Amino acid sequence: MSEFNNRIELQREVIKIINQKGLDIQITGLSDSAIKRWLSDNKLDKNSELIKLLYEISSKLFFLANKSQEQITDSYKKLSVEVSDLVNKLRMKILE
Rank of each mutant, 00 (worst) to 15 (best):
68 S>T: 11
77 K>I: 15
81 V>Y: 06
66 N>C: 08
20 Q>N: 11
17 I>G: 05
77 K>S: 12
83 V>P: 11
24 D>F: 04
72 I>S: 04
27 I>P: 05
87 V>I: 15
68 S>Y: 03
8 I>C: 05
20 Q>D: 08
69 Q>P: 01
43 K>M: 05
47 N>S: 09
93 K>H: 11
21 K>C: 01
49 E>M: 09
74 D>V: 14
80 S>E: 13
36 K>D: 13
65 A>P: 02
23 L>P: 08
96 E>A: 02
61 L>W: 00
94 I>F: 06
90 L>Y: 01
36 K>V: 02
24 D>G: 02
42 N>L: 05
26 Q>D: 12
28 T>E: 14
24 D>P: 02
45 D>C: 07
19 N>Y: 03
50 L>A: 06
89 K>W: 02
91 R>G: 03
17 I>R: 01
43 K>D: 10
12 R>M: 06
21 K>D: 01
31 S>R: 11
69 Q>C: 03
31 S>V: 00
75 S>I: 15
51 I>V: 15
26 Q>Y: 04
62 F>E: 13
45 D>W: 01
94 I>Q: 03
85 D>S: 07
65 A>L: 10
9 E>K: 11
31 S>G: 11
65 A>H: 07
71 Q>F: 09
84 S>L: 11
64 L>K: 03
19 N>R: 01
51 I>Q: 00
59 S>V: 12
8 I>N: 00
47 N>P: 03
73 T>L: 03
82 E>L: 13
53 L>K: 11
1 M>G: 14
78 K>W: 10
6 N>E: 14
71 Q>N: 13
66 N>G: 13
66 N>H: 07
69 Q>E: 14
79 L>I: 15
55 Y>Q: 09
76 Y>L: 07
3 E>Q: 07
36 K>H: 01
12 R>Y: 09
46 K>C: 04
